[in-house]
Design a protein around this nucleic acid. Structure first.
Lengths: 218, 218
DNA sequence: CGGAAACGGAGACTGATTGTCCGTTTCGGA
DNA sequence: TCCGAAACGGACAATCAGTCTCCGTTTCCG
């Protein structure tokens, strides 16, 4: 009887070679940066170039652009959840935890999550759905702790935070980004100040959750 | 002696026909919307389509994309200056004037100003330079009044305000904007709350002026 | 009412992007 | 160390979107 049959490798039939997995990661990382910088319509050749691989390698790993974006988004969401959990666990002060999470998310180019809200994106995909739920949970945890502590205004929800952070950290189109990060920090800081309790104004409309964001196509 | 010589029509040799001026305005308006929505690289055919004119008409009025963008930018800046002056003159409360200016600017798609910061843009153009200066002046006036009144934090400048407003009001890529405006209002409101004095945190870096924004190409 | 000005659709041209082919290199097990 | 399979990358053909022009038709205005 041949060995290695039924050895618990459900998703992928065979193990990837070491360089293959390495390249795969590189491509995803390069794609994340490139998408944030040039938008979701980047030339795939450009992504390959940044990843330091030939374009054929990219197409070997991802059948098309949609699949690549899917993987990038999953990866970004996973990292985001990780950061949220770390911030919550490691920061004793509730509002400090929120600030840390926001600033770290900005550094890690969370703007790449934009395609998540795009119509091209498959909202049914179970992997995506579960990841979104997890993200909602972990960020809520941070916000709720800060709200309970009376440090964060209570008329906002996860969607408000994430969309604003995404928007503020998006690169301006057509500009080289030298020095731009300096400004972004300031703007995030100002926005965070606006989030503090007691609130200084009355917001219009309802608090926005991640579900709200995804559900609003006609 | 033939009439109509020396009759103070310095820029344009002959009067435009009524439908021509109308179309010209339509194109600029359509371009403003399209640039905000799709970025400064929109297909010009798309702009023509939105304006409800043939593409040939667009090319007849604007020799190339650069010229079109230039005109759009000048137009947006002029409207912005107007709004700033109105808000300052008509609103007795200093912070209310600022809020009004910000919210109105958002409605009027000030995000179209992005190309102003782009590398493609001619920074030497006298019309542009003077318009930028005027904008700087009129917005400063609003901010300084609010700062003198102790309502606005003093560690920010015009660039901070404008970039943040631009970012927060940009449409998410690839989404139909139904209901998005609702969120934008909330985010602007939160940001404005963060601008109020007394400041709730210490900002990193220096206050950003419009000049800073334009000067940062390597 | 007539001439000039302006219009718009169709289409040629161009440059960029995609996705495949195939000879070469690299991995990893024996 | 060596060999077969797996993975790689450059180059190329096909496709596509965007730009800009041509020309017959319509619209303005004196």
């Amino acid at each position: 009887m041949p060995l290695d049959m039924e050895t618990a490798v459900p998703p992928r039939a065979v193990r990837l070679r070491a360089d293959a997995t390495r390249n795969r990661e590189r491509i995803i990382a390069a794609a994340r940066e490139a998408i944030v910088e040039l938008g979701p319509d980047v030339a795939l050749d450009e992504v390959a170039r940044r990843a330091g691989v030939g374009n054929a390698t990219l197409y070997r790993h991802f059948t098309d652009r949609t699949e690549l974006i899917r993987q990038v988004t999953l990866s970004v969401m996973a990292r985001t959840v990780k950061r949220a959990e770390d911030a919550l666990a490691q920061e004793p002060d509730a509002f400090t935890a929120l600030c840390r999470f926001v600033l770290e998310s900005a550094d890690e180019r969370i703007g790449a999550l934009c395609p998540l809200l795009s119509d091209v994106f498959d909202r049914q995909d179970p992997a995506v759905v579960s990841q979104v739920e997890q993200m909602q949970r972990s960020i809520s945890a941070i916000m709720e702790r800060a709200q309970s502590a009376g440090q964060l205004r209570t008329d906002i929800a996860v969607g408000d935070l994430m969309v604003a952070v995404t928007q503020l950290t998006r690169p301006l189109p057509g500009t080289c980004c030298a020095g731009f990060d300096r400004f972004v920090r300031r703007h995030l800081q100002l926005f965070l100040d606006g989030l503090r309790a007691p609130s200084r104004s009355v917001l219009t409309g309802e608090a926005v959750t991640l579900e709200d964001l995804q559900a609003r196509q006609p």
